[in-house]
Structures are given as C-alpha cells and as structure tokens.
Simulated scan of single mutants.
Amino acid sequence: MRHTPSFLMTEVDEVRRLVRGNPWATIVSSTARGIVASHYPFLLEEQPEGSDDIVLVSHVGRPDEVAHELGRHEVLVVVQGPHGYVSPAWYPPEQFVPTWNHTTAHLWGTPEILSDDENFRVLGDLVDHFEREMPEPASLDVDEATARRIARGTVGIRLRVTRFDARAKLSQNKAPEVVERIIAGLRADGPYASPALADEMARVHDTTTGLEAP
C-alpha cells in the first residue's frame, strides 16, 4: 500500500477486529506460473490471552491449493473493511479534491495445510459462525457423512501472520467540523451513502474530535 504513516493501523487488536468484521478476503500468491488470486472466507483462530499472534483459518476449493502452491511459499491475504467515496460537497468551498476512505489490512504468512479432520472442523466452524445469525441455524452435523464427502473437495489452511501492513484512512487529516459533515453525508440517503464507513469514522474520531460514536 501507499506509504501513509498518519493512517497506519499498528495495534494487533485493531487488525483482528477488522478481520472479524470482514471475513471475506483475497489470497494472492506469486507462483512459478505468475500471480494467482482467489477469494474465500477467513476466521480468526483465537489465541491465548496476551498473545500478539494473528492466526487465520480457512479453506480453498480444489485445485486452488495447486494453483497457489499453498504451503510452498508466503502468500498475501487482503482484508477490506468499510470503504467509500468522500465527496468535496462535504468539505469547505476551498477544499475541492475528493478522496476515498477505507480500512484495509495486508497480511503475510506461509499457509499450513490442515489434515482432513482439522479441515472438517474448520469448515464446521465457518458454517456455525455465519449460521448463528439465522433463526434456525444449519450445521454440518445434520448429515456428517455427506458433509465429509463434500469436504474432500476442499483443502484447509492455517495462516500464522508473520507481518502486516494495515491502514485506517478515515479523514484524520480533516478538521472536526469537516469530519462531522462527512459522517453526516455518509449516513444520508445519497449516491455515496455508506453507514458502515460512517460508523468506522465515528468510532475512530470519538477519541480525537469529541464525536459521539453511535
């Protein structure tokens, strides 16, 4: 990412929060055949209290594990949080250059290939994680034999993050009254409405501008 020190996100807990809230991520690999990218849901694997480790688990559908050469080299996982266009209509007249606010993390590590049993457990965790919002959650336990047969078409991975580069570009360089106008614009019923981005801005600026987070 572009070198923007004022927008750096350096706290591990903040990166974890970004992953938890935005599990759909992009895997990018530099392979012998060139650059390969795929998209899969990731979960954080909880670590002992006090640990600064960021560990992700997921799966890929065969033959993506071959295409990415998983386990043979480092990969990049890109997590994209709320983002959106910021119009100069929300700025003072003398500020007329628009921008794009975003929260993004680049995570690097070499994937560990999971055993069949651990892959099935992770698949079950993924299903349970997303189904918990449903009124009648589904589960792989409904028909484990069939679920295990389908799971053979996937390969589980664990990624222990060795380094990350994360940004929260949320108008930290703007005056408090401008930030308020941007948040109001993002919450309004307009072409660039983005309540999730407004929430992120309100949360970040709560400690720096006196805004009250929703």
Rank of each mutant, 00 (worst) to 15 (best):
V36L: 09
V86N: 02
W24F: 14
A198K: 02
P92W: 07
Y85P: 13
L186V: 01
S115T: 13
D165R: 15
D189H: 07
H39N: 05
R121S: 07
V36Y: 11
D143S: 10
M134I: 01
R121W: 09
S51P: 06
R72T: 06
V178S: 06
L170F: 03
R160P: 12
E65L: 14
T31L: 07
V86L: 10
H68Y: 08
G81N: 07
R152D: 11
R203L: 06
I54D: 00
Y91P: 04
S38K: 15
D206K: 14
A202W: 10
T31F: 01
P23L: 06
H205S: 08
V204G: 00
R181S: 07
M9R: 03
P63T: 12
E45G: 01
R187H: 06
S6N: 11
E94Y: 11
G34F: 08
P92T: 10
G34R: 10
E180V: 13
K169P: 07
Q80P: 02
A32Y: 07
L197W: 03
D117Y: 01
Q172G: 02
F7M: 12
R16G: 07
F42P: 02
E177W: 15
E133A: 03
D206P: 04
V19G: 06
Y192S: 03
S139M: 13
V75H: 08
A67M: 09
G210A: 14
R152N: 12
P5T: 10
R121E: 09
R121K: 12
T103P: 00
V161F: 13
G84C: 09
A105Q: 05
T110W: 05
V178G: 03
T103K: 11
S115P: 12
I113H: 07
S30T: 07
A193D: 13
T26E: 05
G124W: 09
I113D: 04
S30G: 08
H59Y: 13
V204R: 00
A175V: 06
T10I: 11
P195H: 14
E14R: 13
Q95L: 15
S6R: 14
T208N: 04
R187N: 08
A202V: 13
R152I: 04
V178C: 05
D206L: 11
T10V: 13
A175S: 04
V122H: 03
H129M: 02
L126N: 01
W90D: 02
R62N: 09
E212V: 13
A67S: 03
H106T: 01
G50V: 06
T146G: 05
V12R: 15
P98V: 10
S115K: 12
V142I: 09
R2C: 03
P5E: 12
L159Y: 14
M134Y: 01
S87W: 08
W24V: 03
G185S: 04
V66L: 11
E136C: 04
L43E: 00
E136T: 05
